[in-house]
């Protein structure tokens, strides 16, 4: 039963993986059709590349702030929805809508709303005296990109955590009620530990994609201004597709893969600890 899946997975993962390792040792810049052996030049040039390290710095900001905000907002809202006595289904359904706006459209929508000529959000900001161009200013472009990601993906966290809340057993809560615990104490000592696994799953799913999906950056800032939104994922797109330097792209891709796997492993380890 496992065989077909394993075969497919092997093809889509092992073949590309070995190809990436091979490509990272080849030079594609002279003649992309006939790459020649390049020893470790791609690796060295990546590791010496200031833009590469800078893009990791931006990635850390994007991932840490993005995930943190999504997690806090997502969990908070799941709790709020869980506790409201009426209209839960309606609220949850409406709240889920951004999930189904493809990221590429989210980016377009963000660009549309923030355009200084005709953007509705830009107009609102102008009303309160903020005349800057959000996507064209280094200090505001990254927050805007993060907020687009938050807008799109927080609902996923909410839905998963909400599912966790609904699967909570009754007894521990009742026991806490009997003990006269305050809501915050119940939250801290009963509810959160019980939905911890849900949170970890949500984080795992998000952390897998937040590094590699760059659709919103692609359609809005393209890494700018002044490289302030150039995450490593976007830098990879640039190297692979604009520069068509598949060798260096493979090296960058492999380092990203290692980081993603490390992140994933860490979350799974927390997950496993939560189970015991």
């Amino acid at each position: 039963m496992l065989a077909p899946s394993v075969v497919i997975l092997a093809i889509i993962s092992i073949v590309p993986l070995f190809y990436m390792i091979y490509a990272s040792l080849m030079n594609y810049t002279l003649n992309p059709d006939q790459p020649v052996f390049y020893q470790l030049h791609n690796w060295l040039s990546v590791l010496r590349d200031a833009t590469y390290w800078h893009s990791w710095g931006r990635t850390v900001v994007f991932v840490v702030v993005g995930l943190a905000v999504e997690l806090l907002l997502g969990t908070g809202l799941a709790l709020a929805i869980y506790h409201i006595p009426k209209g839960r289904n309606l609220v949850a359904t409406l709240w889920m809508l951004p999930l189904f706006v493809a990221p590429i459209v989210t980016g377009l929508l963000g660009r549309f709303l923030l355009n200084t000529t005709y953007g509705m959000y830009a107009w609102l900001l102008q009303c309160i005296g903020m005349n800057t161009d959000i996507l064209g200013t280094t200090s505001t472009a990254m927050p805007a990109i993060i907020l687009m990601d938050v807008w799109e993906w927080t609902p996923l966290i909410t839905i998963i955590v909400l599912a966790g809340l609904q699967a909570m057993p009754e007894e521990p809560l009742e026991a806490a009620d009997v003990d006269g615990a305050s809501y915050w104490m119940k939250l801290r000592y009963v509810i959160l530990p019980l939905v911890k696994r849900a949170i970890v799953v949500a984080l795992l799913i998000r952390s897998m994609d937040i590094l590699r999906y760059v659709d919103t950056i692609l359609i809005t800032t393209q890494g700018g201004p002044a490289d302030s939104t150039k995450t490593v994922g976007y830098y990879l797109v640039q190297v692979a597709f604009q520069f068509q330097d598949f060798g260096r792209a493979a090296a960058i891709g492999l380092t990203m893969l290692v980081v993603t796997i490390f992140l994933g492993k860490s979350f799974i380890r927390i997950f496993a600890r939560g189970e015991e």
């Binding site: 990436m20 590699r212 692979a240």
Partner: peptide, 17 residues
Amino acid sequence: FWVISTRMAPIPAVMLP
């Protein structure tokens, strides 16, 4: 873990293969 890790590869890097 290997199963889920097959989903983690950065897309532009695996695009060529």
